[in-house]
Design a binder for these strands. Structure first.
Lengths: 338, 338
DNA sequence: AATTAGCACTCTATTCACGAGAGTGCTAAT
DNA sequence: ATTAGCACTCTCGTGAATAGAGTGCTAATT
């Protein structure tokens, strides 16, 4: 059932007003604030219709209307008008992009998370590139002092992982080099999680000498392949507490507790579709704690592969247009910078 | 003015009861729950005295008594009895200590923070060894691919910092080695923050070739010396929200916001005396947001030097005895493990 | 002289009733 | 088809009434 143009305008007005006021909006308010050329009574009738078709809700008989989830959904899909980014916002994004090369990748991602939350005033969840999905680029083994060394693993996405290992005292320099060269040859270009235990076993049987050293080094590689540490960066956790819907301490607690469970959040964000921006409104979220929140989720690329996920978490009455524009712009710039 | 033995026992009872109930405790309660062999009336009289001398307070005329800050202070200084650690608690501490070598230092510290908060049910703040105060051990420069390399800095405390650098294409292997050897020779054993810019300048003028490469590498070292990132690990942030004194969302927010300001917290914890355990009760804390909280603070050592700080943050009515015992034990074990 | 029983008193927290205010839904007029 | 008008509904804040907890004081007891 399609909505009349007038109903759409009214719905739009209700959503907009509620997004800013967080108070149920009445017919009089709409008539005054939005010049629709209609009297409160007419608006009342239309709102009653909108309620019947499920786009609006009434907290109680004598209160104004509040958008329902369906109302928000319709707003996001059809009513929302794109907004332009402010100069400051663009500047903030460009600033961190410029500094990208100077930082380690994790710091860079943390920056992204901070900027997002400070611009939006919501909470940002950013997953960085997952080492598991990165490709083996190079392995180096340094001997630091007699008996001790450092194995260093470098991936194409810029990860540098290291692990201190013990080196047999009797080990010859050339022997070590030969071994490292062999490992590099064997693993080069493979994504870390495809370096399976069978491949590792094969390598081990090829290099039957130096088992101790080898084991420790291979552990580094194996860990990288298995590691769940698609590390999460949270930004502006406290922002969301400013929302009037968080007046209840229990809600605060359960949400904050959730924030400490990285694994859960990862599975949540991980399910983002690899193209475009996804808006999850209230109940559309899978997690109980998010049922009265909304999220704008998207993935971004590094080296042309889908590597990370960005999510902005806010109240259901979040400023969808602003958030979407911002995220869209950021991802565009991230991807293009390759 | 010294307190009579009986007053001490009553004060002790009040503190203990309040620590567990968080409710003002009345004379009747004390008479019933603690077998002091006294009637409520007698206890009432004593409590009135204790109030007059500032050890107890009354929220309002017809409520029970609550320990004042002075009361807690006296309790901590003279009344508190040491408690034994539970088996589980010892086991949990030993477990992470055992896994120490397998982890990078930062992960290890995070573990400590987690264990502390889960045992105490309070919030733990743990500062790791500060790279700034660690000593230069070794510098390595790897050439990864034409034009690109990786500089690696290793400190005596187990930090491994790296930075990708660009290598001049024309650079000869031997030239690079010579330079790195020189830097190692120059810096070995110095704490990072004593590697001043004048020393760096000196090095630069000694090695007038390869300025670009040199600059990037020295940046790594300089950053390490200046870095404020005595990184903070927070554990159990939500624990503290379970305390009844955090029923107010504004309080929650201001505390959580504070938790995001690492620098502030560092300065706060940093001022811990380098010996023994310090208990800061309420107003004794410097930070406004901590005025109605208490902290148990201490420092721990790595390689025999004071390197990190541990703080447990809880309500003023925290279980001082339990927390102190736990922290004492942990630090003892940390220090002894060298 | 110290302790205790008894009792009046104080203060809080909770419940209930009441009125103001906001907003609706319906009817009748435009 | 729109709008003015009005009765109706529901929430929220205020104030009064009440129950409960705990004290402080006085007088009795040990």
């Amino acid at each position: 059932m399609a909505l009349s143009e007038r109903k759409k305008r009214i719905l739009q007005a209700v959503v907009r007003d509620y997004i800013h006021s967080a108070e149920p909006v009445g017919s009089r308010t709409i008539a005054r604030r939005y010049s629709l050329g209609l009297s409160p009574a007419t608006i009342r009738n239309e709102m009653a219709d909108l309620e019947e078709s499920g786009y609006l809700e009434q907290p109680h008989t004598s209160a104004g209307r509040v958008p329902s989830q369906r109302g928000y959904r319709f707003y996001v899909d059809s009513l929302m008008e794109t907004v332009a980014l402010g100069k400051d916002e663009v500047a903030a994004v460009e600033k961190i992009l410029k500094e990208r090369r100077e930082k380690e990748i994790e710091q860079f991602i943390q920056q992204i998370s901070r900027v997002l939350s400070s611009i939006t005033n919501y909470t940002s969840l950013v997953f960085g590139p997952i080492i598991r999905k990165s490709a083996f680029k190079q392995l180096k083994v340094l001997s630091l002092e007699p008996g001790h060394g450092l194995a260093i693993l470098i991936t194409d996405t810029g990860f540098v992982k290291h692990k201190s290992i013990s080196l047999p005292l009797a080990l010859e320099e050339r022997e070590l080099e030969r071994m490292v060269a062999y490992l590099n040859h064997k693993f080069y270009g493979l994504t870390m999680d495809t370096i399976t235990s069978s491949l590792l076993k094969e390598v081990k049987s090829d290099l039957i000498n130096n088992v101790g050293l080898l084991n420790e080094t291979l552990n580094l590689i194996e860990d990288a392949g298995r590691s769940e540490d698609g590390k999460l960066f949270l930004g502006g956790t406290t922002n969301i507490l400013n929302q009037p819907e968080f007046r209840d301490v229990n809600k605060v607690r359960s949400l904050l507790t959730l924030f400490e469970e990285e694994a859960l959040l990862e599975s949540l964000l991980g399910s983002a579709s690899p193209t475009g921006i996804e808006v999850r409104i209230g109940e559309e979220n899978k997690l109980e704690e998010f049922k009265d929140l909304s999220m704008v989720v998207t993935t971004y690329q590094v080296v042309g592969r889908n590597m990370g996920t960005i999510g902005i978490l806010g109240p259901i009455r979040m400023e969808y247009a602003r958030v979407i524009t911002l995220v869209e712009y950021l991802v565009l710039r991230l991807n293009s910078a390759g």
